[in-house]
Design a protein around this nucleic acid. Structure first.
Lengths: 223, 223
DNA sequence: TACCAACAAAATGTATCCATTATGGTTTTA
DNA sequence: TAAAACCATAATGGATACATTTTGTTGGTA
């Protein structure tokens, strides 16, 4: 780090690799060589190794017993199960939240959904997460909130390219509106049901796309 | 590692520190100096640093921005929330499991609970986990099962000393019996309710003990 | 051609060294 | 006396060098 970048090397390297994995620059299964990364960032292998350990803890890279590191792959099955888990926790959070919601929470949610309706494609994922976060904040369950955030960031974010190509966003926005309405009416059961459908419907659609792409990739790879 | 121990240094160091944290040899808040650990295991600081990173990923140690590592502390609040999360997931797993349970699953569960009734104190925690694992296996949700396992191992195991001193084991065993009976009768709702109570009752009791011990420790520390 | 062995090249694991940063105690000063 | 500045010590961060393991390739043999 030749610049006036006083930040520790481990941190910047970790962040950069992480974002490259999330945005697909480093695709599934790609080998992450310590020496290559080290020369890329003009640092020694020491901070690189630490960065890879950290990312392994985040399940973004896998370190085999030979020491070789690769970008983890997302199987459609494990993706669906993560969505199930997400749905389970988010529904619980919503159930706890609704009785504690104030008018300002509802207003905030509406505001975010309006931004979602006219946001740029790259802004969709973080804004969408923000929408859900606002809904669960009254529940005051920092740990569960964190698990959700992780599921979003470490996993969901990697499907950004699908999400953009998937034409379900208009429906998502309608579902968001419906969700807000039910929260406002204190219709806990209805809101929870709507949320679970919202999550799982898009989950099934995305899993299908994932399966299709992996099939295609495997075919082109075998040529 | 002077012996014929051909295992990588990182692995043995990580495992040893982990078990020492879990069994309380390294108590909450204890500073983990790289040089001290390195000299303890007769290795250089390099593998020690990696081990600490790994343990930080498991939330067993905390690495501050100064680089100093300490054993993480367990606040009663976060402990309770982890139990809530555990209950949420385990209840879901049980709900999915019951319709798929065979007589051999029931028998296996009974068998483990019988072992629990006469096992040595050190065996209680792993056997108890095994009991729950058997109940959830038919659900076939490896990821959720894994989250549960982590919550048990990375967190619950550190309260072993409490669990041993706590006189709730007879009640736990009775609750296990009741749980098995309800599963056998395919009483999903009743079994889920029993499981949630089982988890949260012991959670509240343990949280109280935790609070008491931390208060006591803080008092003795201020002398 | 297929398979196996041996060797070469490359990548990882660990140790050691130096630079930098944090810490604790001492001294100085208001 | 209390607080701030300063310095000495100790600890961490990163780089380099060396050891070990892994991998790929080449050449020989059945």
């Amino acid at each position: 780090m030749s610049e006036n970048n006083k930040q520790k090397a481990v941190l910047s390297v970790t962040e950069d690799i992480r974002s490259k994995i999330l945005d697909g620059t480093y695709p599934e299964g790609m080998a992450l060589s310590q020496v290559d990364i080290a020369s890329t960032y003009q640092v020694s292998r020491t901070p690189v190794r630490e960065a890879l350990q950290i990312l392994a803890g985040e399940e973004l890279v896998e370190i085999r017993d030979t020491g070789r590191a690769t970008v983890t792959t997302i199987s459609p099955e494990s993706f669906l199960e993560k969505c199930e888990l997400r749905a389970l926790i988010e529904v619980k959070l919503l159930e706890l939240s609704i009785p504690l919601m104030g008018t300002e929470d509802i207003a905030k949610a509406r505001e975010i959904n309006e931004s979602l309706k006219k946001c740029a494609p790259e802004e969709w994922t973080p804004l969408n997460y923000l929408f859900h976060e606002v809904l669960y904040k009254p529940a005051n369950r920092p740990l569960m909130q964190n698990v959700i955030k992780d599921l979003h960031h470490r996993h969901y974010a990697r499907l950004k390219s699908f999400i953009l190509s998937h034409r379900n966003t208009p429906r998502s926005l309608r579902e968001h509106d419906e969700l807000i309405d039910r929260c406002e009416r204190q219709d806990i059961e209805g809101a929870c049901y709507a949320l679970e459908s919202h999550i799982m419907m898009s989950a099934y659609a995305l899993a299908e796309q994932l399966k299709a792409q992996q099939l295609k990739r495997r075919q082109t790879a075998s040529l």
